[in-house]
Simulated assay, not measured.
Amino acid sequence: MATKPQTQVDLVILDNRSTVRKVLVITLFLNLFVMGLKAVVGFSTGSLSLLADALHSLTDSANNILGLIASRFSSPLPDRDHPYGHQKFEAVGALGISAFLGIACFEIIQGAIERLIGTSKPIQISANELWLLLLVLGVNIFVAFYERGEGKRVNSPILIADAQHTMSDVWVTISVLAGLIGIWAFSWQWLDVALAFPVAILVFTSGWSVLRQNLPWLVDEMAIAPEAIYEVAMQVPGVLNCHDIASRGVVGRQSFIEMHLIVDAQDVETAHHITEEVETRLAEKYSPVRVMIHVEPPAYQSDHISYEARS
């Protein structure tokens, strides 16, 4: 016998896609503005690190477009074709951001190596161009904090991941700006190439962080330790034992729990009330969560809490 797969708590699922799309459209236009300024100043000065930074900002804009596409298909509400919801579409979008960051990292390193082994004209930069870059930095900081704040408010992984990327762009711009100030004030031409490598490391680190945060969702990694679920279930009166516990998803975004429950009940109605109480307590601790319970009679015996390898 299986109980209803979700409690009343689970039925209240908020669709935040309209807010996500609004934030992505706003940041898209701001990122295009930033990218344009960096590209103009980069070409006028011949700065490799600034052109690499413009490439990084190009990925910001591409990520916004990718996020809009992912948000279009990432409804949290289940339907006939997607009975477990559509949240993985947002995780796929976040992985696309990671891929863009990898491309940017490769381009930066390639350009720096070419500059080291070749010859290039000295970089010429004016005070007005430095002021433009300070404006760019201010816009980047605003976008990062605005997007991260909205992402946390509506619990959107695509906004949080994109804010992570934009924050890496802030540090890239700070590094590049410091190098250009050194070139403008002291004619330290070597700073441009020297800073290109730390920029690449920052980009790679940001991409790896996004990848690490979203892979568990896509590969159905365990979301909640079976022992923790077992402890909650065993506190419910009438529960004799529970075993074969499995979970997936991401706690706080959407998780799914399955378990076999041995109950002290001689009729279906009593067993139903016990399992409903188990579901309610799990929902209070791990919401949003959907719970599926297979009920077994008191005489059933099993000591396998999880699906780990058995002898």
Rank of each mutant, 00 (worst) to 15 (best):
L66W: 01
G67V: 12
G67H: 04
G67D: 09
L68Y: 13
L68T: 10
I69Y: 14
I69H: 02
S71L: 07
S71P: 00
F73I: 08
S75K: 05
S75I: 08
P76R: 11
D79A: 10
D79W: 12
D79E: 09
R80W: 12
D81H: 12
D81W: 10
H82F: 02
G85W: 04
Q87K: 07
V92Y: 13
A94M: 11
A94Y: 01
L95I: 10
L95D: 03
L95G: 01
G96K: 00
I97W: 02
S98W: 10
A99R: 02
F100A: 11
L101A: 09
G102L: 08
C105Q: 01
F106K: 07
E107F: 09
E107S: 14
I109V: 14
Q110A: 02
A112N: 04
E114L: 14
E114V: 07
R115S: 12
L116M: 14
I117G: 03
I117M: 13
G118F: 13
G118W: 12
G118L: 12
G118R: 10
T119G: 15
T119R: 13
S120D: 15
K121P: 00
K121I: 09
P122G: 06
I123C: 01
I123N: 03
Q124N: 06
A127G: 12
A127V: 15
A127W: 15
N128R: 14
N128Q: 10
E129P: 00
L132P: 00
L134R: 11
L134M: 12
L134I: 12
L135W: 13
L135G: 06
L135I: 13
L135D: 00
V136Q: 02
V136S: 09
V136T: 11
V136P: 00
V136W: 03
L137D: 08
L137N: 06
G138L: 07
G138M: 03
G138Y: 04
G138F: 05
I141G: 05
F142I: 06
V143Q: 10
A144Q: 08
A144K: 02
F145D: 01
E147H: 05
R148Q: 07
G149K: 15
E150N: 14
K152D: 14
V154M: 03
N155A: 12
N155Q: 06
S156T: 06
P157K: 03
I160P: 00
A161L: 09
A161C: 13
D162M: 10
D162S: 12
D162K: 04
Q164S: 08
Q164L: 08
H165C: 02
T166Q: 05
M167W: 13
M167Y: 10
S168Q: 13
D169W: 05
D169G: 09
D169M: 02
V170C: 14
V170K: 06
I174P: 02
I174Q: 05
S175W: 06
V176S: 10
G179N: 06
G179F: 04
L180R: 01
I181D: 07
I181V: 15
I181M: 13
G182Q: 12
W184Q: 13
W184L: 08
W184V: 00
W184T: 01
F186S: 08
F186L: 14
